Simulated scan of single mutants.
Amino acid sequence: MSVSPELLKKLLRKQKEKTITEREMVLLQLYLSTSGAEAALDAIDFSDMPESDGQPGGSPEERYQRILQKTVFARERRFPWPGWAAVAAVLLIIGALFFFRDPAPAKLLTWRTGNGELKEIMLPDSSRIWLDARSVLSYPAASDSKERRIVLQEGQAFFDVTPDTRRPFIVENKQGIQTRVLGTSFAVRADSSIAHIYVAVKSGKVSVSWQDKEIARLLPGEQLSYDPSEPAAQLGRMDPAVIGEWTSGEVRLAQADFATMAAAMQRMYGIVITAANAGVSRNLYSLTIRYGKNPQKLVEVISAVNGNRCEWRNRDSTSVIIH
């Protein structure tokens, strides 16, 4: 199938703006899976699309994701169940891709964020991922007809999953703990150094399992902290409205204790903050920490909130004591 650069550009734009029809979505997915997609993307003139940042390099999928991430979002719109013609077209495409599938291992797309960086990712099925600072996430470049699998290697991510009863959405950490959903919104935090994982559900329902054994099923407002070395999962509740609140680009602290403030700064900027004495450790903090700001100035503000001062302990400004 020949790929028209003009049509491909138009479909990319409509996909981002949530105005694409189910049939056009089928065409877009088919185009991106063909051998001509690379040449088509090379031929597109992105001069009138500032979201391209003048960066022509990378694979078609990487360029596709870069364009989708930086185009302004329109109001979110859910698509109705496609008609039989569209379903038949999808099945034909899946069958063709399966028949001509390369036996080589599937290529993975990997996304990383640095200190104070927040990244939004749009998947081909319109599911959206917000990747928190200091996090690493990967998923297959080629679409799988049976499941949608994401590996959160490090850090934290928030997922808003497009419902698809035929293709469950699975998030797992490097130790194999899986969070399985069909369509919902939830947050997952993982640490690559241990098997521990944290899951909190904003809407819908998720199932968390390890070694094919279900640990818990979570509903909105429920959260799970789990480590296979522990005898039992730790379950709790929280206001669903605050789950994934950091995706707005801010972390709001309201009478947060010292440990909560220090954990937020370490997660966002890799800065280790310690209290010089018991009095400082009992401090409470009410302030907003914004992504992308100068972390040294943030620490100074945090210290001044309770009339304290900060003392940096090393040259790279990653360790500080509050007196």
Rank of each mutant, 00 (worst) to 15 (best):
L182F: 13
P140E: 13
D164R: 06
K16C: 11
I94L: 11
N314G: 11
R13N: 09
L123F: 01
L30F: 11
K297G: 07
M238F: 01
Y285G: 08
I197E: 02
A40G: 02
A256K: 05
S248E: 12
G204S: 09
A241W: 01
A190T: 07
R309I: 11
N314I: 14
Q255F: 12
P50S: 13
E22M: 09
V3I: 07
I150K: 09
W130K: 06
G183H: 14
T110I: 10
M1N: 11
L253I: 06
P231S: 04
K18S: 09
W210P: 08
S286A: 13
E17G: 02
L27E: 12
A195D: 12
S303M: 03
V272G: 06
T260F: 03
I273L: 05
L253C: 03
S248C: 12
Q175N: 05
R13Q: 08
A278T: 00
A232D: 12
A96I: 08
W111L: 12
T113F: 14
V272D: 14
A263C: 04
I177G: 02
L218I: 00
G54I: 10
T162W: 12
I197P: 00
S225R: 01
M122D: 08
A104T: 13
G270Q: 14
S303A: 10
L91S: 03
E38T: 01
A43F: 07
R309H: 14
S126C: 04
E245K: 08
Q156A: 12
A89N: 01
T19Q: 13
A256T: 03
P60M: 02
I194K: 09
P168H: 10
Y198R: 15
V72T: 11
D48K: 15
T165H: 10
G114S: 14
K213V: 08
K202D: 10
W246Y: 06
I271K: 05
F159I: 04
T71S: 06
